[in-house]
Design a protein around this nucleic acid. Structure first.
Length: 506
RNA sequence: GCCCGGUUCGUCUAGUGGUUAGGACGCCAGGUUUUCAACCUGGAGGUCACGGGUUCAAGUCCCGUACCGGGUGCCA
């Protein structure tokens, strides 16, 4: 039985890198008829951010990554918040102490810092709390059992550290990267259990993965360095380890490093799935959803960052991804995020939506501008504009003139298309339009083109200024379809008003 | 510093010993259009990080170097 989990820490809004990790877990689970579990890893009281868990849940729901077990949906392996499992971990830490795989330590943060400083200044190649240095510290190795016991009973703060064996060649297997070899001498005696009574990630993670019968651990590459420790922990407990897969990181578009919040703000693309307001600073960050991205597009963008099907197909639905996904085809190297391609993905998914669906999404935007419109009319507008937008919002910014007269006339367009004789041509054209009886796109086109030819004018000399008067800019949807839709009376009104406005300006 | 990982057009990538190194985004040009977008056609863009091997043959296998990234916390 395949059981995978997404185990975020509620220390802030979910980052798209985290969302991709969730996606790959989800796809792997669904592909293999397994279970996808959400587990909240809130063992760090200091970094806990209120609202972060709700944010994570809402984000997963928005993109459609439904989990089978989790804090808000329950399941047989709960609870799914580590803070609610808190009394469970100490026992396991102590079990390791009994087995000799862990020990108590009483060093203060200052003492630890002093040790690191000392090693660094001595230019020691290995600067770790390990078998070489622990003899100089305050722990079970340097104190009698009685003293250890006495200190604990006296309520002195202590931690439980892993007893990292010396000089062991650890070979771990990663589904994506193959074999990774590490010598235990380069590893340290990690803290497993903190003095505040909480486990560290390493302990809680292994205990919970085991208790929840996780079969595959799919997580970000930042965890690869701690994989040997985790494998050793499974060995220490005598448990069978799950299989591991470490996903490549999502990197900044230009420059170097992991994608961060700043990048999005500076380069004009979101880094978070949803809007987020920092509860402490009040700082707001925009999300994909509010930016106008479709959840389908976000999924598609993330899926193609580090994975590919081995075919030329690039546009996928969630179902198609489930069908074709495999961990073996996940890339080893980090992928730079490409904002341009992200927009393209959104455009592609937008075009695959029906006019009705798009109308439904556009309606609230229209309402926010105080526009109340007939659905039949709306659907026609969408049909005309669909190939010209990348985001739903652009139905308004690029097509608001379908709903109200232009507010302004594009200066560049005027300069280029508005000539000496243009006002007269437009007046004549208005009269011509007024005479058209059968006001359909086809007929308008026929009659106006004939008229232009009779008058020995050029199309561009007539139609570009006309477009300017009707919509305020020189580029846009099919002119005659647009004229039909907006309607004869309104067209004539706009020509008259436009002539006045433009001449007034001059 | 030490440890781990990575390195194919600007970007995402195909490629598992023998191909003119393929596709997509972006960019440019032409076609179509009153215009823009969409669409169609074409183009530029890669000494497969570099240096050594192995081999009849290497982007593909091995070693080294460089660069990039990650880790190195009583954070996850």
């Amino acid at each position: 039985m395949v059981r995978v989990r997404f185990a975020p820490s509620p220390t802030g809004p979910l980052h798209i890198g985290g969302l991709r990790t969730a996606l790959f877990n989800f796809l792997f689970a669904r592909k293999n008829n397994g279970k996808f579990i959400l587990r909240i890893e809130d063992t760090d009281q200091l970094r806990y951010v209120p609202g972060a868990e709700e944010y994570i849940i809402e984000a997963l729901r928005w993109v459609g990554l439904d989990y089978d077990e989790g804090p808000d949906v329950g399941g047989h392996y709960g609870p799914y918040r580590q803070s609610e499992r808190i009394n469970l971990y100490r026992k396991y830490a102590e079990e390791l102490v009994e087995k000799g795989w862990a020990y108590y330590a009483f060093d203060t943060p200052e003492e630890l810092e002093a040790m690191r400083l000392r090693l660094r200044e001595a230019k020691s190649p290995v600067q770790l709390y390990n078998h070489l240095t622990r003899d100089g510290m305050k722990n079970s190795f340097t104190m009698s059992q009685q003293e250890v016991k006495a200190r604990i009973e006296a309520g002195e703060p202590y931690v439980i550290r892993f007893n990292m064996p010396a000089d062991r060649q650890i070979i771990v297997h990663d589904i994506i990267r193959g074999e990774v070899k590490v010598n235990s001498n380069t590893l340290d005696d990690k803290v497993l259990f903190k003095s505040d009574g909480f486990p560290t990630y390493h302990l809680a993670n292994i205990v919970d993965d085991h208790l929840m019968e996780i079969s595959h651990v799919i997580r970000g590459e930042e965890w690869l360095p701690s994989l040997p420790l985790h494998v050793l922990l499974y060995e220490a407990f005598g448990w069978e380890a799950p299989q591991f897969a470490h996903l490549p990181l999502i990197l900044k578009p230009n420059g170097k490093g992991k994608l961060s919040k700043r990048d999005g703000d500076q380069m004009g693309f979101p880094v978070f799935p949803l809007d987020w307001t920092d509860p402490k600073t009040g700082e707001k960050t925009r999300g994909y959803r509010e930016w106008g991205y479709l959840p389908e597009a976000v999924i598609n963008i993330l899926a193609m960052l580090g994975w590919n099907p081995g075919t030329d197909q690039e546009i996928f639905t969630l179902e198609e991804l489930i069908d074709q996904f495999s961990l073996e085809r996940v890339q080893k190297s980090g992928a730079k995020f490409d904002p341009d391609k992200a927009r393209w993905f959104n455009q592609q998914h937008l075009r695959r939506k029906s006019n009705e669906e798009l109308a439904k999404m556009f309606l609230p935007i229209l309402q926010s501008h105080g526009i109340d419109v007939d659905m039949g009319y709306l659907l026609k507008v969408i049909d005309l504009m669909k190939d010209r937008v990348e985001f739903v919002e652009e139905f308004w910014s690029k097509g608001y003139f379908f709903f109200k007269p232009p507010q302004d006339y594009d200066a560049k367009g005027l300069k280029k298309a508005w000539k000496e004789q243009t006002p007269q041509i437009m007046r004549d054209l208005k009269d011509k339009i007024a005479q058209i009886k059968n006001f359909t796109a086809e007929n308008i086109e026929k009659e106006l083109k004939e008229w232009v030819e009779e008058k020995e004018l050029s199309f561009s000399k007539v139609f570009t200024p006309l477009r300017l008067l009707i919509q305020g800019t020189t580029s846009g949807p099919h002119l005659f379809e647009m004229l039909e839709l907006i309607g004869k009376d309104e067209i004539i009104k706009r020509i008259e008003a436009g002539l006045q406005n433009i001449e007034k300006k001059k």
